[in-house]
Design a protein around this nucleic acid. Sequence first.
RNA 1: CGGGGUGUAGCGCAGCCCGGUUAGCGCACCUGGUUUGGGACCAGGGGGUCCCAGGUUCGAAUCCUGGUACCCCGACCA
Length: 491
Amino acid sequence: MAKVLTPRSESYSQWYNDLVLKADLAENSAVRGCMVIKPYGYAIWEKMQAQLDKMFKETGHENAYFPIFIPKSFFSKEADHVEGFAKECAVVTHYRLMNNPDGDGVVVDPEAKLEEELIVRPTSETIIWNTYKNWIQSYRDLPIKCNQWANVVRWEMRTRLFLRTAEFLWQEGHTAHSTKAEAIEETETMINVYAKFAEEFMGVPVIQGFKTASERFAGALETYTIEALMQDGKALQSGTSHFLGQNFAKAFDVKFASKEGKEDYVWATSWGVSTRLMGALIMAHSDDHGLVLPPKLAPYQVVIVPIYRKDEELEKIKVVAENIKSKLGAKGVDVKFDFSDNRKPGWKFAQYELKGVPVRLAIGPRDIENGTVEVARRDNLTKETVSIEGIDEYISTLLDEIQESIYNKALEFRAENTRSVDTYDEFKKVLDDKGGFVFAHWDGTEETEKRIKDETKATIRCIPLDQPDEDGIDMVSGKPSKKRVIFARAY
RNA sequence: CGGGGUGUAGCGCAGCCCGGUUAGCGCACCUGGUUUGGGACCAGGGGGUCCCAGGUUCGAAUCCUGGUACCCCGACCA
């Protein structure tokens, strides 16, 4: 088989790049750091969106939409927030172009300068809290639980397709509550939604935990995260949910009258996942042949490839294929029947492997004669010949099995690449030799965290929620620690 | 922002060092035919402001100057 991808063992990042391009997921655009998401890639994103959107609605959220532009002054209202985002903002200063008086092309009309510059949103807390101020007077107006699907812009120095782009697509939930407890509960509910989505739909096991103060969202009191492990041993932050306390309510003066007639500031949360999830999906499962998609997110779960010499043969195959397609369709399985005649079967096999289609059916004259069909699994590349009788049942069971198997494989990989260490030497050795998640004691200080980051490039991915208390000593400072945290090198 | 690299057909590249016919090659594309159970083959065909601007020269894809775009590595990354 001809190789079209750089093998993972040779260069993981090159492999990733090749795969995104060759599987037709996305490509670089004419605009620095911005990508074009191609139809096949976007179809996967749409599946993610549809499922997440459903889960958001099931947990009581509504969709809304807020402007892409935010007045500059809004950013100065919350000190930590502006500090976190100031360095990567795109700014609109003018609103009109004119013909170049010196010759060709157009120039910005200097007359058309904005009174106040507009920031292209890097995130929407400020504009949303400015809006919420008008929506909230009483506890009866609460909670407000809005989500928006949007694009945001962060002017990153260095970008990578899906993992970090200057513009990206995401959803951001912004909720307002009358009590601290309710806001915290909301924050936890949403990180649970994300974890469930990652595991059950993407087939990516994640660890839930708190971010340390230095890794927190700008303006948050607590940031919950889900952390996934990629095949190269690096961690990927895959979703975050923030408890914002009353910071934004105070910054935008959003108060409500309680049942008892007292005035108080509103409690806030925000939470988001982005097209970065596409990166997680790709890196968690795919191999040197291409993408491996979990059935629940594949644009189509099954592709049928006909094998024939004569047109009469194709006609017979078409009848069988269309029949299978409609039976599977009735079970909610999307099938692509590729009877295009400009490619040979071998080419199609390779192509659909590259694109990660979970199940491939090949039907030829031999199968027509025997009443069979060849079933190939993308995840483990096995093939078998199956009777056409009851094929719809067989496939739909197989898809469930593949979904589960992909998750288990990733879970196993994570287990093999998760280690507990007690000394700094061992810590460095593990990071250099193997990578992965490293559980170690930490004294809770920012100094130690920073020192470890500077010396090893490993960061504290999170303070895991379900980690039992355990007395120990910090591997660097020797100070006491009550619990292990997770370190890793990360994307 | 620092270091490196690359801009030549839709894509991937050669040619440039050492200036000189009509700028090549592979893939893709179009036509015809033979093929089709793991990336087919033959024949024919179409497609180029050689990134931009200026300079040197009888002559520039090639040399010089400036610009610009993108990619990679690093720093940065809520």
